[in-house]
Structure formats: C-alpha cells, structure tokens
C-alpha cells in the first residue's frame, strides 16, 4: 500500500489531488469541492498547507498566491442541539 494520503480525514491521496488539478480544479475552493480535501472533521487543519503546496507546484504559482479555501462559520464543530433555544 504505497498510497500517500494528503488529506488524512477524507483519505484523499496525492494522486487523486494531482488528477483533479489536471482535470481542471485549479483553485483551493474547487479542489476542496472536487476531492473533499479539507471537508473532513479537522476542516483542513491538517492538509491545507500540503494541498496548497501541491496546487502551487502543479499550476506554477507562487505559494504566496495560493490562499486557503474559503472559511465559513462555524470554524469549530457545533452540536446541532446547541443551536436549539429552549422554549420559555
């Protein structure tokens, strides 16, 4: 098993990322939606840097120009029932 997992949470391999980029996912937001890299439980904390470097290298961009995928609220897991207001 010589697979190299880049996104540990969603089990996305380096090969899968490279293929997605070759197929046209050339921004972090597209790559995230295409492969689910960054959409797992850690929300990209573990893989974001690695994926950005792969993307920069594959597209000939400077790492300075590759920003992470868009962050949205909530940036920490919230139990659904934390949002339920008690009836008075």
């Amino acid at each position: 098993m010589d697979e190299v997992f880049v996104c540990r949470c969603e089990e996305v391999t380096q090969e899968e990322l490279q293929k997605a980029i070759a197929d046209g996912a050339v921004t972090m937001n597209e790559l995230k939606r295409w492969t689910r890299a960054g959409m797992g439980l850690c929300q990209g904390k573990g893989c974001s840097r690695l994926v950005m470097n792969i993307l920069a290298k594959s597209t000939g961009q400077s790492p300075a120009d590759v920003k992470p995928a868009h962050y949205r609220n909530p940036v920490r897991p919230m139990p659904i029932n934390s949002m339920i207001k008690e009836e008075e």
């Binding site: 098993m1 190299v4 997992f5 880049v6 540990r8 380096q14 904390k45 840097r49 690695l50």
Partner: peptide
Amino acid sequence: GMENAIAFPGST
C-alpha cells in the same frame, strides 16, 4: 498554531 504533517507511504 498546529503541528504540520508530511505525507509519505504509511504516514497515517
């Protein structure tokens, strides 16, 4: 901050 990971065969 958080520790970086590197990816290689068997890294998980």
